[in-house]
Write a protein that binds this DNA or RNA. Structure first.
Length: 568
RNA sequence: UGGGCGAUCGACUAAUGGUAGGUCAAGUGCCUUUGGAGCACUUUGUCCAGGUUCGAAUCCUGGUCGCCCAGCCA
């Protein structure tokens, strides 16, 4: 298994209860000389999201930590919701995250064995065919506070149950007409033990088994036994399955098979984020986003396209740990680990998103030169590159104010600043259009300050990025922001839905940006830090000569904070 | 008037009867050729009430609050 290796930035939480349990089981040799075996069991009915990443890191990470193995198992017991497209995307995403499974498994591979086990339980008088309708079953199940009632079909003979079940399998009955149920206890305080349904009739084509079957096992009758077949030692799942533990154990005990054990941990919740497959599907189907891989989606394919990296996601997952407490993690924490990762690794470049032309009046017309620029100041091994400079350049509109507010260090009339890696310039005058908008700033430069330092030791308060106007290239820039404007997207007014919390400004497309020419060679999915602006990566929509950049995250903006404080 | 699980800084998470610590966020200062990064410092916490104990976040009792469960979904 070539799992995510522990790089230096990996955060190891001191401990979590799952690791403690496994460590103890390894120490006491609970499973003899057998190795720790886990599994990641997605249902192929949607794309994986950041919440699954936590489960993946736990399933694969913990097994790996103790020299164990992890299977990727598709929990494909419901043919009506599952598709090959999802299987493919899930495999791709798990690998992208940095994990490789020991065995690729499908619950559907066990349909035959599961069927035999069902027969075994019927023969043992532990299962029966019920003719009650779905509605009646619900009714007979009782309530949270009151016991259920036995189905009138509960005491059929073994022979009759066998006959009926075989005929169910042979397709003699229509969908919904009968089910196979475990015979346990209709008065159990745990609803899952009130004769749970084991099999339902579904004349549907399965993405792998085709039309071989018309009866399909329920999750509870499939999951534990699948774990058992694969000799899973530690079957980790989320908290809402805790109530299923008794039924998980019941089937394994009745069948006398390998005793896999289930452990539950808390599901990931993130502020400003929805992690419900149903709602994500709705966003896709109703076209509130461009698809499962829309860069605003919390899906792994979405955040990959946005520019997030597997390393950062793994570090994040390690940092948040695992407990049995429901909570909501600040999205800021994910963003922090992503910035941290990209700060170390992303190549720097200069790009002006909202250009303002600057003419350097005392720079010779027609002259050009190249200045040497570090590709990544955090990583000298990234080398340097040559960036063209000339008389006319673009700077960010925000970097010039005719009337500078207090503490504004950037360019303003009479003020001297540094153009990064180039020269000191001083603003002299502005040109405006008929409407009074500044369209051009005239400056002078100090030829002695080449490279960005003045020999006389003169200091400037500000350093600004720039792009040489005649050399600049264009690109489409997609500025992404949070998909939802409310920390809890599920918190909405009466009569509304989570859709009312959609952030109307989650995507802004810029067409006027000017970029340094070296960016022309950028490849899809390549990450950059546009200095002083943010982290960007190349979108797959790019074509030769037509670059598209997605903003992964903006850089932290201290000035914006100062300005906001002054304004409020 | 069922059952299950849980409760530690604003958020996430350690401490497993012996100094309540880390990360994020927030704030202050230093530094800076990215108002980025970095560095230093600071603020804020054991749900409540009893009990056991030399000593309790941890053990006990009783409350309170939160989450999950009545699919022929997973």
């Amino acid at each position: 298994m070539t799992n995510a290796n522990s790089e230096s930035q990996d955060v190891r939480t001191p401990s979590n209860f799952l690791r403690d349990i496994i460590a103890e089981d390894v120490r006491t040799k609970k499973y003899g000389d057998a190795v720790i075996q886990t599994r990641f069991p997605p249902e192929p009915n949607g794309y994986l999201h950041i919440g699954h990443a936590k489960a993946i890191c736990l399933d694969f990470g913990l097994a790996d930590e103790f020299g164990g193995k992890t299977n990727l198992r598709f929990d494909d017991t419901n043919p009506e919701k599952e598709e090959q497209e999802y299987v493919d995307s899930i495999m791709k995403d798990v690998r992208w995250l940095g994990f490789e499974w020991d065995r690729l498994c499908f619950a559907s591979d066990y349909f035959g064995q599961l069927y035999q086990w069902a027969l075994q339980l019927i023969r043992a008088g532990k299962a029966y065919v019920d003719d009650l309708s779905a509605e009646d079953i619900r009714h007979y199940r009782g309530t949270l506070t009151g016991p259920g009632t036995d189905s009138p079909y509960r005491n059929r003979s073994v022979e009759e149950n066998l006959d009926l079940f075989v005929r169910m399998k042979n397709g003699e009955f229509p969908d919904g007409s009968r089910v196979l149920r475990a015979r346990i206890d209709m008065a159990s305080p745990n609803l899952n033990m009130r004769d749970p349904v084991m099999y339902r009739i579904l004349h549907a084509t399965h993405h792998r088994t085709g039309d071989t079957w018309c009866i399909y096992p329920m999750y509870d009758f499939a999951h534990g036994q699948s774990d058992s077949i694969e000799q899973i030692t530690h079957s980790m799942c989320t908290l809402e399955f805790a109530d299923h533990q008794p039924i998980y154990r019941w089937y394994i005990e009745q069948l006398g098979i390998f005793p896999s054990q289930q452990f539950e941990f808390d599901r990931l919740n993130l502020t400003y984020t929805l992690l419900s497959k149903r709602k994500l599907l709705q966003l896709v189907q109703e076209k509130h986003v461009s698809g499962w891989d829309d860069p605003r989606m919390p899906t792994l394919s979405g955040i990959r396209r946005r520019g997030f990296t597997p390393e950062a996601i793994r570090t994040f997952c390690a940092a948040i740990g695992a407990t049995r407490t429901n909570g909501t993690t600040d999205i800021e924490m994910l963003e922090h680990f992503q910035r941290d990762d990209l700060n170390r690794r992303a190549r720097r470049a200069m790009a002006v998103l909202y250009p303002l032309k600057v003419v350097i009046d005392n720079y010779p017309e027609g002259q050009e030169e190249f200045v040497e620029v570090a590709n990544n100041p955090e990583d000298p091994s990234a080398g340097t590159r040559q960036v063209p400079f000339s008389r006319e350049i673009y700077i960010e509109q925000d970097d010039f104010r005719e009337l500078p507010p207090p503490k504004y260090y950037r360019l303003s009339p009479g003020k001297e600043v540094r153009l990064r890696n180039a020269y000191f310039i001083t603003a002299q005058s502005v040109e405006k259009d008929a409407a009074g908008n500044i369209v051009e700033v005239h400056c002078t430069y100090d030829p002695a300050s080449r490279g960005g330092n003045s020999p006389d030791g003169r200091k400037v308060k500000s350093t600004m990025h720039w792009v040489s106007a005649p050399h600049a290239i264009s690109a489409e820039i997609r500025l992404y922001d949070k998909l939802f404007s409310k920390a809890d997207p599920g918190d909405f007014e009466e009569g509304q839905s989570f859709l009312s919390n959609l952030n109307p400004n989650s995507l802004e497309i810029l067409s006027g940006a000017r970029l340094e020419p070296s960016l022309a060679g950028a490849r899809v999915e390549e990450h950059f830090q546009f200095e002083r602006v943010g982290y960007f990566c190349v979108d797959p929509d790019s074509a030769p000569g037509r670059l598209v950049f997605n903003r992964t995250l903006p850089l932290k903006d201290t000035w914006a904070k100062i300005e906001k404080k002054a304004g409020s």
